[in-house]
């Protein structure tokens, strides 16, 4: 279930030029945080709590900061900065997936 949310979030990131798409991904990430915490609380496997929760929370703050940073520069470099922020999300998702798989 976490993985489904993960994939959804990753698919959406292709539309990084549209701030709305970033917003959708962000909502997905919030859902992922909630689902992730619920799943973490329910599992009896040895998932590294601080790292897992840390990555879940960390993934939330990347896009807003990236969007804010990108908006202040109205050129292609601003979009590039946002692209960097978006690029971080799948990396975090892969790490999350590894952490969950243990």
């Amino acid at each position: 279930m976490v993985y489904a949310v993960v994939l959804a979030a990753r698919d959406k990131r292709i539309d990084w030029t549209v701030l709305g798409a970033v917003g959708v991904v962000e909502v997905g990430l919030v859902a992922q945080l909630v689902v992730g915490i619920v799943q973490y609380a329910a599992t009896d496997r040895d998932v590294s709590g601080p790292f897992f929760i840390g990555y879940l929370i960390g993934s939330l703050i990347i896009l807003p900061i990236g969007a804010f940073w990108a908006l202040a520069e109205s050129s292609r470099w601003g979009a590039g900065a946002l692209a960097i922020a978006c690029l971080v999300i799948p990396i975090l998702e892969l790490r999350l997936h590894d952490l969950w798989a243990v």
């Binding site: 990108a70 470099w77 590039g80």
Partner: peptide, 21 residues
């Protein structure tokens, strides 16, 4: 902080966040 610097700072920000966490 403008032009390509925007991207440079974005990457630095990511590493600042990642390294701190």
């Amino acid at each position: 902080k403008h032009g390509p610097g925007r991207i440079l700072i974005a990457v630095y920000g990511v590493f600042a966040l990642a390294a701190t966490a």
